[in-house]
Design a protein around this nucleic acid. Structure first.
Lengths: 207, 207, 207, 207
DNA sequence: AATGAATGAGTTTTCATTCAT
DNA sequence: TATGAATGAAAACTCATTCAT
């Protein structure tokens, strides 16, 4: 990922330039969410953005760069959404609940973005075949914060003894599971789903 | 579909035919597990099987058919592996634990198959863009059995009151999460991971 | 065209062998008539005959040979149908009418065969790109007989002076035109069409 | 369809774009006329145009689209050639003669185009197996004009009573018959052929 | 007498990328 | 800043044919 850096030697980032980039990123998000990773060709994305294909090549260093930036932007936005909600809570137990609720709230508020990032993370690969974002949901910034919450809870005696990495991965998986359920059943009650998950993990982690 | 779009509704399944089919299915599994869904072209699969591309078309009615059969075969094998382990246990709590352990044992015993099915399920789409196997892990035969176990536990008073669909989806997600962790960290201790998950869900579901 | 001759050194033409050949030829006729020349693959023909693809290769020296024999057999049958009807008439004018009526009657009695031969004649090409049956309808046995009728009529003073080749080609084209109309409008009245054509060519040729 | 499945409903048709399209259409015409419909692959057409295969996909929405445009362009050109010749004549008899002569003149002046359109019309099929241009020569704009001439002649008493559809189809068939003869015998005298046909149909229709 | 198995050549189409303007 | 034009590679798939049995 090469965020904020231009492929060609151009430095001044004009407002119009940033607008174009955002427009393309949005089109990529919508397209990936709608038709999936494999079908989200540059032609389709360009078409969805109402621009010519080569504009994408102009602003991004190829498809990989575009998708990298899509994931980067969504991750950033997600963290910006969740972080204050964690900060508002005191105690590991409360913060774990806030983490779950905030994530689900983000998904509800940004359905397309959430689906897109889940889709890309599960499909975007390097040339050697390994998933490019395999660490997302397991070792990224947000998850590291979650792990820290869990560790703090254990130190403070709020949580029982467990492997924080395993629980963190399970929590994240549960959250994307909620999203997948929502995709399959758009009429599902995400609020109730959240209540269930909060209780589930409180019981699972409490002493 | 049988070879040559045969006029006969059912032709005798020769040994060599079944062997070839199995060989191709195996090559597809290996290839998908190694390079991912999008890169697993028929050419690559054929190459991996050491056969010509058109042999695949000869035995399968296209790529969709092949992948359908891959998923079908693995699902069947998985269920055949897990079912007796469930039957050997009495009580919902014990059976839930057996479900988790058996699934992880299957994954350990059949790493490639497990990765392949997880990959295909997450990527294989219909022409309309919807995931072809979206229901796998949410509404398939194995999951229905899991839901039944959870319901039984609630009826018997072993489990607290929760939404069985949510918990079942979360359990399944946790299991594929274990697999994803194992892919990312092949040195990870799956046995310990299993112990963690069993305890987590016992606490999460118990009263 | 290599009628009656087998590709492989087999001489005894058993009854069963002839039955198979006829079965395959019939299947080819039906298939070509239904889906057109380009789509009439050996696989489709074999499927329609309820046999394996390689049986065709066993009885015919490839697709060209099969189609040659299809055209040959239909031409032969057509001539066998028409010839006695010509012989029954005296005078060129009467025989020209009989030619037109007999051909249309054949088409009505053998719709599939007629469509098939028209289709193949218009599409089957040699490797150099030239139509293999370009002479059919212009210089074949039946047309030569038609030309002879026209010449006789001119000699006898029944017909005016015209180029018999041109008129013969036009008559034949008119007849395949009737067939094409019938294909496009299956409800068309072929009897009335025939009456129109007979009158048309009587006036066109008479003195 | 325009290049790149453009997002804009109508892009400016640059000169170079129109030139390329015309070049490709011409190459398709030449190729179809030379090797026939079935052998006229996009690869061959591209080769004949001296361009890469994918340029065709860039300018046309697939092979069907290309052939549709080939037929459309030739039909348009043919009508533009014939219409003024009809308009220059008074009386149905004279106009019928003009129709025949003008069509044959077009064929002589545009041999390849004429052969190509005859070939495509006789072979290009929809997925359901029906001929895509079955109505050409039976129910298209030019033929409707011919039918109108015939009807006018009957109303004015120049022509006898006959089925105009049958006669129109026969005239058109006779004309493609002339073309087929010319293909088979390039040395044939098309002028004389035309004289024969004009006389034939004058006698056939006159009272 | 028959065919299952296999294949290589060829089909149309899609795609990401490059480049001159 | 933007894009129209072009391309080569690769995709899935079809086909007529061959061959061993």
């Amino acid at each position: 990922m090469r965020p904020q850096s231009s492929p060609h030697p151009r430095r001044p980032q004009s407002i119009i330039e940033e607008a174009r980039r955002a427009q393309i990123v949005d089109a990529a998000i919508t397209t990936v969410a709608r038709v999936g990773y494999a079908q989200a060709s540059l032609a389709r994305i360009a078409h969805s953005a109402g621009i010519s294909k080569s504009v994408i090549s102009y602003y991004f260093d190829g498809k990989d760069d575009l998708l990298d930036q899509v994931v980067g932007e969504i991750s950033t936005g997600m963290w910006a959404f969740i972080a204050p909600r964690l900060a508002a809570e005191a105690g590991a137990r409360a913060r774990l609940g806030a983490y779950i609720r905030a994530t689900l709230d983000y998904m509800r508020a940004h359905r397309m973005r959430s689906i897109a990032v889940m889709t890309i993370v599960g499909s975007h690969r390097r040339e050697d075949g390994t998933l490019r974002f395999a660490s997302l949901g397991a070792d990224d910034a947000i998850t590291r914060e979650l792990v820290e919450i869990l560790r703090q809870g254990q130190r403070d005696g709020e949580f029982r003894d467990f492997d924080p990495q395993v629980v963190a991965a399970t929590v994240n998986r549960a959250l994307t599971g909620a999203l997948a359920t929502w995709v399959l059943h758009p009429e599902a009650d995400m609020g109730a789903y959240g209540v269930e998950l909060v209780e589930l993990f409180e019981l699972a982690t409490g002493r």
